[in-house]
Amino acid sequence: MSSNRDAAPFLRRHRLSPEASAYKARRKPSVPIQMPDLTDHAAVERWRAETNALWGDDDDPAVPHGREVIGGIACRVAGPPTGAPILVYAHGGGYVLGSAAVAIPITARLAATGLRVVSVDYRQPPEHPFPAALDDVLAVYLALATGDTPVALAGDSSGGALALGAAVTATGQDLRPSAIALFSPLLDHVSVPGNPLADDEGRRLIDCYAGDVDPADPRLSPLRADLSGLPPVLVHAGADEPLAAQAREFQRKAAAAGVDVTLDLWEHMWHTWHYHDLPEADQALAEAAAFLAAQLTPAEM
Rank of each mutant, 00 (worst) to 15 (best):
G93N: 08
A133N: 01
G238S: 03
P232M: 02
A210M: 00
G159H: 00
V259P: 03
L265F: 05
P279Q: 08
A245T: 13
L186M: 11
N52Y: 03
G56S: 11
R5P: 01
G159V: 07
P125R: 04
V192W: 06
P298G: 04
Y23I: 08
L186W: 14
T107M: 06
L144P: 03
M35W: 00
A293Q: 15
A255C: 05
G258R: 05
A247F: 01
P29S: 08
H189T: 08
E201T: 12
A179K: 01
R46I: 11
S2V: 14
D214T: 02
A133H: 10
A101Y: 06
C208R: 04
D200E: 13
A179D: 06
G93S: 04
I106E: 15
R46S: 13
S119K: 04
L134D: 06
L142A: 13
D57K: 14
H41S: 10
A74W: 06
A293V: 11
Y23K: 10
L16C: 13
S2C: 12
L263Y: 00
A247Q: 04
E249T: 12
F291A: 02
A255N: 05
R219L: 09
R123N: 06
P222R: 01
I106G: 01
D264H: 09
A166L: 08
G229S: 08
D207A: 15
D277A: 14
R123G: 07
A210N: 06
Q246C: 00
H65I: 10
E241D: 05
A152D: 08
C208M: 03
A103N: 04
A43K: 02
A152M: 01
E287P: 05
L162I: 05
A53K: 10
R203Q: 14
D148Y: 03
A74K: 11
G71H: 10
M301Q: 15
V69A: 10
H128D: 15
P125F: 05
L292P: 00
R248Q: 15
G238I: 00
G114I: 09
P193H: 01
D207T: 11
P185L: 01
E287I: 02
N4D: 13
S158Y: 05
G238M: 03
D277T: 11
T297G: 04
V120H: 09
G83S: 01
P29N: 03
S158C: 15
A289I: 02
A290D: 15
A84G: 00
P185N: 10
G229E: 12
R248N: 12
I180P: 00
A132S: 14
L11I: 15
E249A: 13
D121I: 12
P80R: 00
S3M: 10
I104P: 07
G165S: 05
Y141L: 00
A62I: 07
G79T: 02
P80C: 00
D217N: 13
R13V: 14
A257K: 06
L278R: 07
Y209I: 00
R116D: 06
K253R: 15
D59R: 11
L187S: 09
D59A: 13
G160D: 06
E267F: 08
A49L: 11
A281H: 04
L220A: 09
P105W: 06
W273K: 06
P32H: 04
G258Q: 08
A216V: 05
A237I: 01
E280M: 04
A167I: 07
S158W: 02
